[in-house]
Amino acid sequence: MLRRFTDYLILLAVLVAMVLLFGLLRDTFWSFATLGNIANRIPALALVATGMTLVMITGGIDLSVGSLLGFCGAVVGVAMVDLQLGLFTALLLSLALGGVLGGGTGFVSVKFRLPSFIVSLGMLEMVRGLAYKLTESKTKYIGAAIEPLGAPFGGLVISPAFVVSVLVVIAGQVLLSNTALGRHFIAIGANREAALVSGVPVDRPRILAHALLGALTGLAAVFHCSRLGSADPNAGVGFELSAIAAVVVGGTSLMGGRGSVVKSFLGVLIIATLEAGLVQLGASDPDKRIVTGAVIIAAVLADTWRRKS
């Protein structure tokens, strides 16, 4: 219990230290505008990181989430622009298709005993192709019908998308810590044979984790579209790596069996704050990449050392 608490504290301390440092270096950093910027750019990443945490805890991984984000966004674009459907219908479509395709990756990998790494790699290509096909490789401008989701509301600096993503993070953590399914995820990831022997269902929870990640990616796609006011078939290229990086910075093990949704969210915040701070400092693009990469490695190293000692 104490150890868990320290983990949170350390991540929070890193976050606070970064905010202090950037604020001292740049006087515009400590502002509601910056806070809004960071809050409103992370909903999609926070949702996918939540789902990715669950999948990684079961010992799986899904590399197709970036493409799936592009594809579900394309579905939203076609639904709202070409078919003139409402936002709610488009959102349901995106959630459902995301869930089915994510679940499909899980199903194939679990039932045919293939590494989810490979199956999702195949899915990455297929789904991106579908996204291009669906939109004829053209960006679709949706405009005012979707923009309010990603824009500040009610006189605050944060968007509805941010509020929803925080709620999803909380729900994800509750699922993980307080339900039988959550305990099964952890048991499967920690030791699949032992779980099987002790009567924990092994296949279905793993497929379910992938389907949840897919559905969350579908929701993330809607939020991504709301930020651009458009559906972009190229959306999410490399997004899977950002999600995995955030999850790993939050201390979830790539081997499975250990992790926390809230800590992944802190990982998302750390990376987003770092990016925002580096931009305001005027760091060049190569510098940004070098620093971000170094921070990811440092975070994982620190986590490993703490666990050994």
Binding site: T28, S31, N37, D232, A235, V237, Q280
Partner: peptide
């Protein structure tokens, strides 16, 4: 931006510039 097709990053940059 890193990648010519990373629209979200460019959107974030514009937001940052407004904040600055």
């Amino acid at each position: 931006i890193k990648n010519e097709t990373d629209l979200a990053e460019q959107v974030a940059l514009v937001d940052q510039m407004i904040a600055q």
